[in-house]
Amino acid sequence: MIRSILLAAGLALLSLPAVAATQAEAEAALAAAQTAEADALAAKAAWTTTEADLTKAQKALAAGQWDQAKAAADEALTLAKRSVEQANEQKTSWRNAVFR
């Protein structure tokens, strides 16, 4: 009986919609992404796709679509961080590709 109740509760939890992002969360996510992208630009390592996601996040924020804004900003943050990682990794590994 207890097991059935727990199972039902678990299923109910799974079917609940994800918690909606607030304006503050969306703004914080965008600010974090913009900071990371500034680092990528300074390292001349930025990706066009990061810029596209930032634009998408800014538009969604302006339209009051906090979920979409946060999702796009999170994606931009990931891309910006990855672009800097790529540049750092390539600082030494490019030599392995030189034709000699």
């Binding site: 066009t48 796709t49 672009s83 490019w94």
Partner: peptide, 8 residues
């Protein structure tokens, strides 16, 4: 020789 961009 450096890999760049999202396409790497």
């Amino acid at each position: 020789y450096s890999r760049k961009g999202q396409l790497g």
